[in-house]
Write a protein that binds this DNA or RNA. Structure first.
Lengths: 251, 251
DNA sequence: AGTTTTCTTGCAAAATCTTCCAAATTCTTC
DNA sequence: GAAGAATTTGGAAGATTTTGCAAGAAAACT
């Protein structure tokens, strides 16, 4: 590949991913880490991105929850790990319903090789693969919920009610032995439709969500097939998981 | 092969590929790398491409106009003018169906003050106002058409069939006294649904589209209420407009 | 403090560029 | 049509750039 083409592709990839490790970039453009490092340095002098330790990021991150701020850089690492582990559960060519939310966004980033068919109401995920010919994206309709870039409303719920997918990859605000809870009431109905339409249901939770309860009830544990999380599950919750035949996956 | 023909084909190939190595070009035109290198140098002095190490690239990055990296396309000035003029036709608070396409994107940019409710299948327009609380965006569902960022397919058509809006702001590839034409067959059905669902239909055409015919028929002139364009309309077309009570708006 | 990861620097291999030359092609002139 | 001149083409030698790797330095994590 040409040097300029490589740099352009790095730039484009960064636009979508906001942040990327040099390793990941090297894989993306099929070059060595050294070369990518030099490319990123060149792009930095052109003012097109900023180098960080181990990677690069775009200058103007999107102004929503997907922003990688230094504040929750720790969280990002965990979400990356969850994302990678969860993506590994998807088989090549499967149809995947994907929830909106930053954790699920990180799952999406690792799905490219699986050539999946993704059905989602998440604008960031849609943008991630908007010009990728390997990944087919079906976007639900709906009203854009400003800050989050999520499509909500009856149009979105209808879309998922009509769909059938192999897997649903979901997230929520909390999970306890009593079930899964979310704080965005607007999303509940849509998420329930997503769960209804999928053969297999995978939930992703970072450890802060375990045994945490939020306002609205989303679903019973028995609808869940797999939980992906980043730390060992507390005993009482693990018991509940066992009773409901929920598989637990750690990175 | 003639030298000129070779250079023409190199130029054409670059237009398609955006980047190419000399090796690849040599294979394309069936000549040696040395020869192709000279050709590329010649094309560079003519200002038709730029040499890079190991290859060449076109000067104007192939901005699919829709690509989210806000790269500029040709005729930006005209499109801006049309966009501004067209936006002025929208009343505050109206519901507006917006077609996908670069011209309409420029209309969208000037709509913020009108606090409109926008219904669209254009991902770039959706992104434009994704985190704006003044403009409500309803995105149609659908499959993302890779490089264009347009939502297509039955889901999209259905959405518009169910909608009702005050205005539809549309574009197409050409307009003649016989009607409006577009080249993307995938979009025709969706655009027809858009036109059907709107009280008032506005079409935007830059002057290159006037009296230009494309593959697929989109609609008759009598469905149009207003045409916004950037140069005076040719007499025969203007006659047809008058017969169909079409108002013409120039910036 | 010690371990791991990443960065820098220097270097050698690979790829590419320039320059030059000879063969091939085309053009000119007779 | 043929001989000679001019141009184009393909390739080779040496210069230059790019690339990937490795060792020590710096930074981050535990």
């Amino acid at each position: 590949m040409q040097a300029e083409e490589r740099q352009l592709r790095i730039e484009e990839y960064l636009q979508k991913a906001e942040f990327s490790s040099l390793d990941e970039l090297a894989r993306q453009v099929n070059a060595s880490v050294s070369t990518v490092r030099r490319d990123v340095s060149a792009l930095e002098t052109q003012g097109k991105c900023r180098r960080t330790h181990g990677g690069a990021r775009i200058l103007t991150p999107r102004s929503d929850e997907f922003t990688f701020t230094t504040r929750d850089s720790q969280q990002v690492v965990e979400k990356e790990a969850i994302g990678k582990a969860c993506a590994a559960l998807v088989q090549p060519g499967q149809s995947v319903i994907m929830d909106a939310g930053s954790t699920i966004y990180h799952v999406a980033r690792y799905l490219q090789d699986k050539k999946p068919q993704i059905v989602t109401n998440s604008l960031p995920i849609a943008n991630l693969y908007a010009s990728d010919h390997l990944v087919e994206i079906i976007l639900s309709g709906g009203v854009i919920y400003p800050r989050l870039g999520v499509l909500v409303g009856p149009l979105a719920a209808e879309t998922f009610a009509k769909m059938h997918a192999d897997v649903a990859i979901m997230s929520a605000n909390g999970i306890t032995p009593e079930g899964v809870f979310n704080s965005h009431a607007l999303l509940i109905e849509i998420q329930q439709a997503m769960i209804q339409s999928a053969q297999k249901v995978i939930f992703c939770f970072d450890h802060t969500k375990l045994n945490h309860k939020a306002v609205s009830f989303l679903c019973e544990l028995d609808r869940i097939d797999t939980v992906v999380t980043d730390q060992p599950v507390p005993p009482d919750l693990l018991d509940a998981f066992r009773r409901n035949n929920i598989e637990v996956v750690l990175p």
